[in-house]
Amino acid sequence: MTTLLNADVVKQIADAFAPMKESVHILFFGEKEDCVYCADTQQLLEEVVAISDKLSIELYDLKDDADVAAKYNVDKAPGVVIAAKDGDTVSDFGVRFAGIPSGHEFTSLIQDILLVSGRDSGLSQDTRDFLKGLKEPVLMQVFVTPT
């Protein structure tokens, strides 16, 4: 099988992942029909996960695993959840990708993995205080294009 990431890119990512302390768990949601980018996204994620033993991935189907999709509020395929993992406990930090994380968004994917691994949002105290007091959920959707 042809790989999506060449040896140079794998080396760069391995260097970026080297300081990772805590584990990150990726949940991938695909769909069997009408999903142009599901196969590529799954392969891309599997190649990334293979680079570090701090990373793991579980594959789900948006329809067959509707309960898991609902739990994580995933409604698009390909859908990707970047979660924290400590022992057997998976913690949702609210980080999602909908669509293939390629081009510029591949960098975002790697940065998100590092952010979740660091277990620190890096947000200011003001922002943290406000978010702590939230009574209603917030959904932020950042629309991007791969180029």
Binding site: K76, L134, Q141
Partner: peptide
Amino acid sequence: MVQAEMVEAT
């Protein structure tokens, strides 16, 4: 309470 989703617009 907060979810952030990157959405591939195309």
